[in-house]
Write a protein that binds this DNA or RNA. Structure first.
Lengths: 365, 365
DNA sequence: TTGAAAGCGGTACCAA
DNA sequence: TTGGTACCGCTTTCAA
């Protein structure tokens, strides 16, 4: 859809001429540098540098003067040159599997805000659910950021450790030995889910699994089967399915051919897909089948019916992760202390997709 | 994180001693530079540089040799140094009002992909719906990016022009004289909406307005009132409301006290909020009131009822915008040709939130 | 407190 | 095709 093309004038003799004459590629007008300011203010460049970055290490009057001149000239420090000199880019990378997945919106916002608050800029890389792509992003960005925030990583522990060798890393929704992390408490969360279902008379649940690379997914299934066992309930698993609405269509089909009275989906996207498929098959939720999701995403409160789901504080997680990362970055030197592994609270949000277990078999209408 | 660390022996008396002696703050282990490679390969640094960035301008055998050595030493070019020397950062900034608004997910994904495809990295800045914050982001990023992609800008035309003076700019969902842009065809879109409603017998519509700073919002209202006039329908406007679900709660209330048989909300978020409020007030959609949104966001197909909405190709827009921006960046020099102003097609997605106009008055149950 | 100058890691021009 | 080298704009010793 290059509109430009259609608007472009045909190549004229003049243009051609200019090209032949190798018109000097008039670049961006040279920016005002520290040297210009120094000259205009009658001081050394280093003084200007100090006046700008360490105001306290400069005489008050010279500082005011220099700053005034800098201002008058419209001086703006070059982040690039600064980074080259100091080794700090003031940029943090946020890497995640899918930027369009609404679950990540909270993490992104939290991270963005905290990054801004600490004077950093956030770069976002979306790996499209692929571990290789994730590593490629890491390699590409390593040279231009101060650290990595890796959310729901699809990479192997080994790659993660390798990444941590390149730059400071904080993991979100994932734990890897030796690496700082923030992850939601899935043990407690899955227990809450099972308790809730048990209290509604369910004895048999079906877990609709997400991507096998998902560390969180593994924790979820582990938690569910453990909690179910303790409650003497049966828990089965089907999948894996892509963690998307479409994945839920297929997962919903699987649920129909199972005897479970409740399904727990790997995340809300899947759960909503299940909901849609069930609706189209005439299965009533929760009368015929209860559905539970994870994440409490945007929209899980206005789907039909609103979804019972396990929420965590994503925005908070993003914020904390940035804080941890910044302190790691600042820390370059001795880190005698072992890396933090923060476990964040989760909370079951009960809405209308769960109800009393049906008594008979599932009848398709 | 200095990888060295984990491999390092525990702190011994020696280390302590060293620390007391003001051990130079052992920074990140110095990276392998072009000079190291040059030395090891027995060539000049400039040759290494060429071998890496312009393989064709170097003798094949030297090239292979240099590259092999570089590889062996684990050389990775420093993007920062590169940027300082060349003036190209290979980074593009995407600035938008609210990163958590699902509407932008498509634009972001499209832009991200195309940026990656053209070898660029994308930096995202969220302005929280504030024009001042937007400008702050621009100022902050100007020095470290090659260009700006500004989506649904809340800034004044003047600020936008000012931004364009700093760096190449492509606008999305906004037009400003002299600046390249990509925006959805609201004239045709609003006509489609009005035609659709007219065909269902509606004679009176209510527009629930979004932020007054929204250029698109202004176009929408202009289009609606023009199209309505042509059809001899009445169109009223209420608002402004924040373009969010919560805004829709309030907007829904406003709709209840109006005689219109159809409401058109500034965007889907607002529309869904309206839907929720109407449901809680016992108003049936579309039997009592029809509701139309804009954007066809993720979730507009599974809300209750699924929303009739005007969609545009956001992912496509993001991609094209990046293409335009890259060509602007590449272009630095003669810009004789006027900036492109792309108008992208829109399409009405008809779902279940619109139906025949009710005949009597609106009765609250 | 200030100035001088050596980097930071490449790029790019010019000469060989 | 290669080497030498002057930058790019700022940070950071080290002296004064």
């Amino acid at each position: 859809m290059d509109v430009g093309k259609t608007l472009e004038p045909p190549v004229t003799g003049w243009q051609t001429f200019a090209i032949i004459c190798h018109m000097p590629p008039r670049r961006r007008p040279r920016a005002v540098t520290i040297t210009d300011v120094a000259q205009a203010a009658g001081v050394a460049p280093s003084t200007v540098s100090r006046a700008v970055t360490r105001p306290d290490r400069v005489n008050a009057v010279t500082r005011e003067h220099v700053l005034a001149v800098a201002n008058r000239l419209g001086y703006r420090p070059s982040p690039v040159a600064r980074a080259l000199g100091s080794g700090r880019t003031w940029t943090l990378a946020l890497v995640l599997p899918d930027i369009t997945n609404p679950y990540f919106a909270g993490v992104i916002r939290g991270a963005e805000r905290q990054a801004a608050a600490t004077g950093h800029v956030l770069v976002i890389g979306s790996s499209e659910e692929s571990g290789r792509a994730e590593w490629r992003i890491v390699e590409k960005l390593a040279g231009s950021v101060d650290g990595f925030l890796i959310v729901s990583s699809r990479m192997s522990d080994q790659r993660i450790v390798q990444t941590a060798g390149l730059r400071p890393v904080v993991l979100v929704n994932r734990q890897t030995p030796g690496v700082t992390s923030v992850s939601p408490d899935q043990a407690s969360g899955t227990r809450q889910i099972i308790e809730h279902l048990a209290s509604l008379g369910h004895r048999e649940v079906l877990f609709i699994a997400g991507p096998p690379e998902s560390w969180l997914g593994a924790r979820r299934w582990a938690g569910i089967s453990a909690a179910a066992k303790k409650r003497r309930m049966t828990a089965r698993r089907v999948g894996p399915f892509p963690p998307s609405i479409e994945g839920g269509f297929v997962g919903g089909e699987a649920a129909l051919s199972d005897t479970a009275t409740a399904v727990i989906a790997h995340n809300d996207l899947l759960a909503i897909g299940v909901l849609m498929r069930l609706a189209s098959r005439g299965v009533r939720v929760p009368e015929d089948l209860s559905v539970v999701g994870f994440d409490n995403i945007f929209g899980s409160d206005w789907c039909d019916p609103p979804l019972t789901t396990l929420g965590d504080r994503t925005e908070q997680a993003g914020r904390s992760a940035v804080d941890l990362l910044v302190s790691l970055v600042e820390d370059h030197g001795d880190d005698a202390e072992p890396p933090a592994e923060i476990v964040a609270p989760t909370e079951l949000v009960i809405r209308r997709s769960t109800g009393r277990a049906r008594t008979g078999k599932l009848v398709l209408r």
